[in-house]
Amino acid sequence: MRPDRNQRKTRTREVLAADVDLTPIMCLFIILVPLLLLSAVFERLAALQVHLPEASTIEETEKPADGPTGIVELRLLLKEDGLSLEGTLSHDPSGREKEVYEDIRYDFPLQGDRYDLEGLQKALRELKSQYPKHKEIVLLVDDKVSYDAIVQAMDACRQEFIVEDGEKRSRDLFPEVALSEAFSEEKGFEGLREGTRKIDKKLGIR
């Protein structure tokens, strides 16, 4: 009898050890996995704020007066044959007011078929270190420049990435980017006003 009982004992232990009920966890997985797969985001979206020169006049009244930053205006021209950075300076880096506004201009010709964004960032970094308070830059874009090139140029103007202690960090350059066209055509503007008036009338707006 003894060896027989022993045998039965080990047999029950074996059965107990093997018997984890996986059904509830499978149920959970089967529900959770499709749910998460459906809501998975593989491409993350972001926003880029742009200001239009016309619209920015509204905001100017709300803007706190920080005093002169030393730069009257900073413009980046995006043309088919390259970039040009233009600026009008009113102060020395030391804060002394200039007697006559000084114009600066740097040209960055195309590198192969791409814009020389590294060169641009170098110039912007230098300007930023001299005039740290200035934040605005206006992009003047030529008609045939692609949207992708504009966004890349905007990125280069907004911030730069530096490696500090083995860590990648971003530093603001000129984060307030306004978008404008390189050569405005008066005729186009006139047509715009005419067009809106007609449609406004149709919609019953004065």
Binding site: E43, R44, L45, A46, A47, L48, Q49, V50, L52, E54, A55, I58, V151
Partner: peptide
């Protein structure tokens, strides 16, 4: 609609 943002991929 003067407050314009451009949607981009991160």
């Amino acid at each position: 609609f003067p407050r314009i943002s451009l949607a981009v991929y991160q």
